[in-house]
């Protein structure tokens, strides 16, 4: 069903959110998506097109109402919360727009926390975190709190955190959204290098064409559907719910 080099496959994904009493938003209306191992993919589309929703579902933060999600050849959309926690901690890395570092923890502790959640001992987690921090060029900043770091540095800590458990896939939600152009380019180039050097799969949700330009493939979304860039299939607009 899945070719061996497909990291993630979503088929016929539907997701509806309730905003008010009788007010629903159909965030996904049968979207299909497939990510190959080692790819660097951008997901683009206007606001409300379902980019973030599909990223949350791909990252096992949320479940689709309908459809299937396969990760490394395993169907994950019907797994229980505990199993999803385990998958998130070991198979997925997240990079967020607002960096999302924990303010009371140092750079090193923010990274080691992810390693601990993946099952490493405190000591082992610290060792892995120190290595990951060195890999993003911040070895000297281990003891600094997020508030003592620049935006670019914070995002590099977040990248180190996403990579510390050598996940199957790193998901980024507007990873350069809070950075200036220069820093943004620096961060993109760092991710591109990591992708090329280690073969880590990156999926980045973005508005920014410059970010998308660094990626090898761009998936476009509109109205809860993947409309372009998904290999091997036509958009499934007819299955939209309403």
């Amino acid at each position: 069903m899945n070719s061996p080099d497909v990291v993630m496959r979503g088929a016929g994904l539907h997701k509806r959110y309730r905003l008010g009493k009788d007010n629903f938003v159909n965030a996904l209306r049968g979207a299909n998506v497939e990510i190959t191992a080692g790819e660097m993919v951008a997901i683009m589309g206007p606001s409300g097109s379902g980019k973030s929703t599909i990223m949350h579902i791909m990252g096992c933060l949320d479940r689709p109402d309908q459809g299937e999600i396969w990760l490394d050849g395993k169907r994950v959309d019907r797994l229980g919360g505990g199993e999803l926690n385990r998958i998130r901690s070991r198979e997925i890395g997240f990079i967020f727009q607002g960096f999302n570092l924990i303010p009371t923890l140092s750079a090193l502790e923010n990274i080691s926390l992810a390693a601990e959640y993946a099952g490493a001992s405190r000591r082992e987690a610290m060792r892995k975190a120190a290595q990951a921090l060195a890999d993003v060029g911040l070895a000297g900043w281990a003891g600094h709190r997020p508030s003592e770091l620049s935006g670019g540095q914070q995002q590099r800590v977040a990248i180190a955190r996403a990579l510390v458990n050598a996940p199957s896939m790193v998901l980024g939600d507007e990873p350069t959204g809070d950075l200036d152009t220069g820093t943004s380019r620096e961060i993109m180039s760092m991710m591109r290098h990591i992708n090329q050097d280690t073969g880590t799969t990156f999926v980045l949700v973005t508005h920014n064409p410059e970010v998308a330009a660094v990626c090898a493939r761009i998936i476009y979304m509109r109205d809860g559907l993947v409309v372009e860039g998904d290999p091997g299939q036509a958009p499934g607009g007819s299955s939209a719910q309403g």
Binding site: G81, R86, I92, N100, Y117
Partner: peptide, 10 residues
């Protein structure tokens, strides 16, 4: 939310 996204269990 951050901790949960990193896979922290209940």
């Amino acid at each position: 939310g951050i901790r949960k996204s990193l896979g922290a269990s209940h």
